[in-house]
Amino acid sequence: MSDDAVDPEDVRHVADLARVDLDDEEVDRFTDQFADILESFDRLDAVPEVDRDEELANVMRPDEVHDSLSQAEALRNAPESEEGHFKGPKVS
């Protein structure tokens, strides 16, 4: 069992942070499964520190106006829209 084995409250808390509701059965299953999965993640403790020599370069382009989707195309998949805007649920 991992030192960091989670309890159902932890699963609910993290699911809340991730904005995913879970039903009680999912919380129970995830609590059990996370014990195994986090135990395997704990094995990363044995990994030595390694020099990372990433050869990364920024990719730049001129800041110019290009053709893009029309407003109608961009809104076409929205469940709800109003006057050219996405319509979402109330904020509070």
Partner: peptide
Amino acid sequence: GNWNEAFAETREEGFGEEVKRRVVLGTY
């Protein structure tokens, strides 16, 4: 519900269990 509640309900209903598992573990 409000924005956060609607967001969480949409994702509960729209995602399958493996996706939820990975999103929650990744958040953790």
